[in-house]
């Protein structure tokens, strides 16, 4: 369970503090046990049905907004460190 949690934390970019790890792992394990009931269902149908009760989407015409976007949006976004961009997996 600890290894699984570490892997999931890595994928989700989260970390657990040493103090909360044990408690978290216990509750998480309860949860996994709780949803495991779903695995007992043997549904072999290959098709995975739609989630949303609308059978086709409405698309938008190719008409851009003419006015600049309302509401205040910052124009400058700064982030990260170049040397580290490649670090870690995608």
């Amino acid at each position: 369970m600890k290894e699984l949690l570490d892997h999931l934390c890595q994928l989700a970019r989260l970390e657990l503090s040493p103090g909360e790890r044990e408690e978290f792992a216990r509750k998480f394990s309860d949860l996994v046990g709780f949803v495991d009931a779903i695995k007992e269902l043997r549904d072999e149908s290959r098709e995975i049905p739609l989630q949303v009760p609308k059978e086709r989407m409405d698309t938008a015409p190719d008409e851009p907004r003419e006015e600049p976007c309302k509401g205040e949006l910052p124009r400058s976004y700064r982030a990260g460190h170049i040397g580290d961009l490649e670090e870690g997996e995608v």
Partner: peptide, 27 residues
């Protein structure tokens, strides 16, 4: 920008979300 990108992600997300939210994200 003093943190590496991966450190930054964790440093923002971990304390930013409460326990239940982190639990559900991981689940």
């Amino acid at each position: 920008i003093s943190r590496t990108l991966q450190q930054h992600y964790r440093a923002v997300r971990s304390p930013g979300f409460g326990e239940e939210v982190r639990r559900r994200i991981l689940l």
